[in-house]
Nucleic acid binder design. Structure first.
Length: 507
RNA sequence: GCGCCUCUAGCUCAACGGCAGAGCAACGGACUCUUAAUCCGCAGGUUUCGGGUUCGAAUCCCGAGGGGCGCACCA
């Protein structure tokens, strides 16, 4: 919401309620200043965190004194006054700790700071570690300093911040007010750290490839475009790092990965964000089976590190991530479900009939392979609960994947599906330059027919293939979706700190 | 893009055609063991914005804006 950043004058009778609250806090801050207390000191040394104190002293009986002096810093999130005795709940990143402030014990400066104290202020404090008469671990405060004054009031301490708009736009407030939001992002960053650790431990080199690209490739998606002034060229934001990563394998890196922010200029819903994170990994000398092994291991590692369990609950659904995960051939599974053996070499009429029978819509120009893939998306995917690898995917929808040695209409490609969603896409990489050229040519043909999603030919990538790409296994993992799964949330915006929204108006 | 829902005090929510209210936060006061502290008192509003209907609109209608959900596209 728009707020005037100018300090309102005291005689302004028209000032709003919020302005009055802010003015009151400024008055307190300035009063501290007039007492010679700097409300914005440059630094503060602490000796412990709330979490450390709980770790070291939890379990003490009520009304105990430890003789241990600790110095803490954090934000005031609750304030309970009893006249000459005041309880404060102080929050730092590690948790919360109670401050017990007795008038008879505290310093004069502590008294001055208390006078000026509001919910939300950052303070530094020191005192003896004790337990209260009710048994709560507390700091018996003797000194208190203001570290930074909060000028705006905090959301309701019990209900927190509820409105999604504000939660996304002012994530800092969401984080400080809502423990659930902190929980989700703690899981996110633990999971990402675990993925990175796992990959590094497995000998993968973390690399960086361009986000600004002359021609976005490596996936089927509509890109964002921008302009590079220095070279006066049109650039697009990457939709996938795939082509550059494979060029690094050509260059001699045998195991590479990138945690890549990708950008796709497409619809926004609970599962899609225009800006999303993927982990892509490429390993020389491997095939898609290695990709399935890797996917399983790294997701299990991420789950262990972030939530410590293989059981997750999303909405009403309870899912079991315990490995190993089944691997089902797409055509076998489809046959089991629709009762007819389909194959990309089948006449389109036969596959269309199955689509019609299963409410799967299609376009006139789609091939049998594309239709089969569509059946997988609309008929099989919704059936998935616990993790399952689906492998063997029509070559028609896999322009960068190697075809199967025994069946050239199918790609050595898999998708990892959990809870009705795709989490990983991986395949044996196509490394025959002429075949890649043919695949690109076919995509161009589709583009000429008006398919906006057809993949553009990338001559630089083909040239790289001509230097020789070894047999390679590649995978791409959707990190946001993985975090949604681990945290048990159903909106992708709840796992992205600052999701894309229409710009705020400050008029 | 289409449809549905939503917007009231800093926050969370009432009032649903008839005086805009509560809790928390704030402000003044009491209180040395609370932890959603309690108690007394006091204040806080362009009901998102602009039109319209009406004796009277937060409420009904139209339009605009923000957000959410569903469908379509996509991972």
């Amino acid at each position: 919401m728009p707020e005037d950043l100018a300090i309102p004058s005291d005689d302004d009778q028209s000032q709003g309620a919020l302005d009055a609250l802010i003015a009151e806090r400024k008055r307190k801050r300035d009063h501290l200043g007039s007492l010679g207390v700097n409300p914005y000191p440059s630094r503060f040394d602490r000796t412990a965190s709330a979490g450390e104190l709980h770790r070291d002293y939890d379990g003490l009986e009520a009304d105990q004194r430890t003789g241990q002096i600790a110095t803490l810093a954090g934000r005031v999130v609750s304030l309970r006054g009893h006249g000459k005795l005041i309880f404060i709940t102080l929050a730092d990143q590690s948790g919360t700790i109670q401050l017990l402030i007795q008038e008879s014990r505290r310093s004069d400066r502590a008294g001055q700071v208390l006078e000026a104290l509001d919910l939300g202020d950052w303070i530094g404090t020191s005192g003896e570690v004790i337990t209260s008469r009710r048994g709560e671990l507390s700091l018996d405060v003797d000194d208190l300093q203001m570290l930074s004054k909060a000028l705006r009031p905090l959301p309701d301490k019990w209900h927190g911040l509820v409105e999604t708009d504000t939660r996304y736009r002012q994530r800092e407030v969401d984080l400080l007010a809502n423990a659930e939001s902190r929980r989700v992002f703690d899981i996110r960053f633990k999971a990402i750290a675990a993925l990175r650790r796992f990959m590094q431990d497995d000998g993968f080199v973390e690399v960086e490839t361009p986000i600004l690209q002359p021609m976005a490739g490596g996936a089927i998606a509509r890109p964002f475009f921008t302009h590079g002034n220095a070279l006066d060229i049109e650039l697009s934001l990457r939709i996938a790092p795939e082509l550059y990563l494979k060029r690094l394998i050509v260059g001699g890196y045998e195991k590479v990965f990138e945690i890549a922010r990708n950008f796709r200029n497409e619809g926004v819903d609970t599962r899609h964000s225009p800006e999303f994170s993927a982990l892509e990994a490429y390993r020389a000398f491997g095939d898609f089976n290695d990709g399935m092994d890797l996917s399983e291991s790294m997701i299990v590692a991420a789950a262990e590190a972030s939530i410590g369990t293989m059981t997750v609950t999303v909405g009403e659904r309870s899912l079991d991530l315990t490995p190993p995960w089944p691997r089902r051939h797409l055509l076998d599974w489809l046959e089991a479900v629709v009762g007819v053996r389909l194959h990309p070499s089948d006449p389109v009429e036969k596959v269309r009939a199955i689509c019609d029978a299963h409410h799967c819509e299609y376009l006139e120009e789609w091939t049998s392979g594309k239709l089969i893939f569509e059946l997988y998306d609309t008929v099989l995917l919704p059936l998935v609960t616990d993790p399952v690898f689906v492998y063997g995917i029509p070559i028609d929808v896999s322009p960068l994947a190697r075809s199967n040695d025994d069946d050239p209409t199918m790609a050595d490609r898999f998708e990892l599906c959990i809870d009705g969603k795709e989490f990983v896409n991986g395949y044996s990489e196509l490394n025959i330059p002429e075949v890649q050229v043919e695949r690109f040519a076919r995509e161009s043909q589709l583009a000429a027919q008006g398919d906006l999603e057809a993949m553009p030919a990338d001559a630089a990538f083909v040239r790289a293939l001509e230097y020789g790409l070894p047999p390679t296994s590649g995978i791409g993992l959707g990190i946001d979706r993985l975090v949604m799964l681990l945290a048990g949330v159903e909106a992708i915006r709840d796992v992205i700190l600052f999701p894309m929204l229409r710009p705020e108006s400050f008029d």
